[in-house]
Amino acid sequence: MSLHLWLGFLAATLVVALSPGPGAVLSMSVGLRHGYRHALAAILGLQTALLLQLSLVALGLGALLAASENAFLAVKLAGAAYLVWLGVQKWRSPVGEEGASPMDEALKSGFYRQGILVNLGNPKAIVFIAALVPQFIDPAAPKAIQFLVIGITMFSIDVAVMSGYALLAGRFRNRVRDRRAVVLQNRMFGAIFVGAGCLLAGASRH
């Protein structure tokens, strides 16, 4: 991959990463409630799914998902259902008098898995990758090395952007420790997750 192609891909990746989506919502939600250390687990889960999706594209399977209406629909509905479930769990999360939730410790162990499932449940992501990445592949150069460079670039940019979202949200963490603020935060992010799930359920392949 030439420097010119790589810079073009870098710019495209940055624009996509900065666009708000379920991954950004998850990063901000965890960063605000639990701090950056736990948000990083969710962010690494998002990247695990992202690299898996890129691997499928490299193997030519991304185009199959884009072409198969049934496969796209199945992944889309599963992803939408998971986002709605996350939203309902967030909305209903019990809060103690001091703002602490009995579910907090259990939730902390599952942020990495949540990150994976949030990204894997979005079929438009792999369709987008399948449409974007080939434009920056030089057919005259070894593809394996190019996909490696692309993977490292996507991973680095997305980690940086999601970390920015989480750290920004974390700056307000001390202001949402009382019970009323925690309840409001839970319901706000719960509603956003449910809304994201509904939007995904209505999304098309194009």
Results as ranks from 00 to 15, higher is better:
S19F: 11
Y112G: 07
P22Q: 01
I152E: 08
Q185L: 12
R33G: 04
T13A: 13
I157G: 03
V88K: 08
G31D: 04
V183F: 08
S109C: 03
K124V: 05
V149I: 11
G110T: 15
G45R: 02
R37K: 06
R173E: 06
G195Y: 04
L168G: 14
M162E: 10
R33Q: 13
M28V: 11
P94H: 14
G170Q: 08
P134F: 10
Q146Y: 05
M154A: 01
G197R: 00
R37E: 02
M28S: 15
H38F: 12
Q53S: 06
A196P: 00
L7A: 13
N122K: 11
L54F: 04
A80S: 12
A66P: 02
A63K: 11
A125S: 03
N122Y: 05
A196D: 02
I145N: 10
A144W: 04
L199Q: 13
S19D: 05
P139L: 01
V176Q: 09
A24M: 13
L61K: 06
A141G: 01
F189H: 12
G62W: 00
I137K: 11
L51S: 10
Y36N: 04
M162T: 07
V194K: 02
F9K: 00
F9M: 09
D104C: 00
F9Q: 05
R171A: 15
L64D: 05
S93M: 15
R33T: 11
Q47C: 08
A41T: 12
D178C: 09
T13R: 00
L3K: 12
G62M: 01
L107T: 13
A131Y: 05
L7C: 13
L54I: 14
Q47D: 06
L77A: 06
A42L: 08
Y112F: 15
A140I: 08
L61D: 07
A66D: 12
P22N: 06
W85L: 09
S55M: 07
W91I: 12
S2Q: 07
L59D: 10
L44N: 10
